[in-house]
Amino acid sequence: MTNSSLTSVPGTLTRRLAATSLIGQSMTVFFGGLVARQLEVAAGDPDGRADTYLFGGIALAVLCILVSGLLRRPGGVLLGWGVQALTLASAVVLPAMAIVAVIFGALWWLCLSQGHKMDQLTAERASAPHTDSAPGTDHAPHPDDRPKDD
Rank of each mutant, 00 (worst) to 15 (best):
residue 133 S to Y: 11
residue 24 G to V: 06
residue 142 H to C: 13
residue 99 I to Q: 06
residue 47 D to W: 05
residue 34 L to A: 03
residue 142 H to L: 14
residue 52 T to S: 13
residue 43 A to D: 09
residue 10 P to T: 11
residue 24 G to P: 06
residue 131 T to Q: 04
residue 72 R to E: 08
residue 43 A to Y: 01
residue 81 W to R: 14
residue 64 C to P: 01
residue 145 D to R: 13
residue 130 H to G: 09
residue 96 A to Q: 05
residue 67 V to L: 06
residue 62 V to Q: 02
residue 56 G to M: 06
residue 80 G to E: 12
residue 107 L to D: 12
residue 65 I to N: 08
residue 32 G to H: 07
residue 2 T to E: 08
residue 83 V to S: 11
residue 63 L to Y: 09
residue 143 P to E: 12
residue 83 V to K: 05
residue 13 L to P: 01
residue 116 H to N: 09
residue 130 H to K: 15
residue 117 K to G: 05
residue 146 R to M: 15
residue 71 L to F: 11
residue 27 M to V: 09
residue 149 D to H: 12
residue 50 A to K: 00
residue 82 G to A: 08
residue 71 L to W: 10
residue 84 Q to D: 01
residue 104 F to D: 09
residue 120 Q to A: 15
residue 101 A to H: 04
residue 84 Q to R: 09
residue 137 T to Q: 14
residue 132 D to Y: 14
residue 47 D to P: 02
residue 88 L to M: 05
residue 21 S to E: 00
residue 112 L to Y: 04
residue 61 A to P: 07
residue 149 D to Y: 04
residue 94 L to N: 04
residue 143 P to M: 02
residue 3 N to L: 03
residue 37 R to G: 15
residue 71 L to P: 01
residue 58 I to T: 12
residue 108 W to V: 00
residue 65 I to W: 12
residue 37 R to W: 03
residue 35 V to G: 04
residue 106 A to V: 15
residue 145 D to M: 14
residue 95 P to R: 06
residue 35 V to L: 13
residue 40 E to W: 01
residue 127 S to N: 15
residue 92 V to D: 06
residue 147 P to Q: 11
residue 46 P to L: 01
residue 110 L to H: 02
residue 76 G to S: 09
residue 112 L to F: 02
residue 65 I to K: 11
residue 14 T to R: 12
residue 114 Q to F: 04
residue 12 T to H: 07
residue 43 A to G: 12
residue 62 V to W: 02
residue 149 D to A: 15
residue 89 A to G: 00
residue 90 S to F: 01
residue 110 L to F: 00
residue 140 A to C: 05
residue 102 V to A: 09
residue 53 Y to C: 13
residue 43 A to I: 09
residue 38 Q to C: 12
residue 21 S to A: 13
residue 77 V to R: 14
residue 54 L to Y: 14
residue 128 A to N: 14
residue 123 A to W: 14
residue 67 V to C: 05
residue 129 P to F: 15
residue 22 L to C: 06
residue 106 A to G: 08
residue 116 H to C: 03
residue 15 R to M: 07
residue 141 P to V: 00
residue 67 V to P: 06
residue 106 A to Q: 04
residue 86 L to V: 14
residue 98 A to D: 06
residue 21 S to L: 01
residue 7 T to Q: 01
residue 69 G to A: 02
residue 106 A to D: 01
residue 82 G to D: 10
residue 82 G to Q: 14
residue 15 R to G: 09
residue 95 P to D: 00
residue 112 L to C: 04
residue 12 T to P: 07
residue 26 S to D: 04
residue 64 C to D: 03
residue 38 Q to N: 13
residue 92 V to I: 00
residue 38 Q to Y: 10
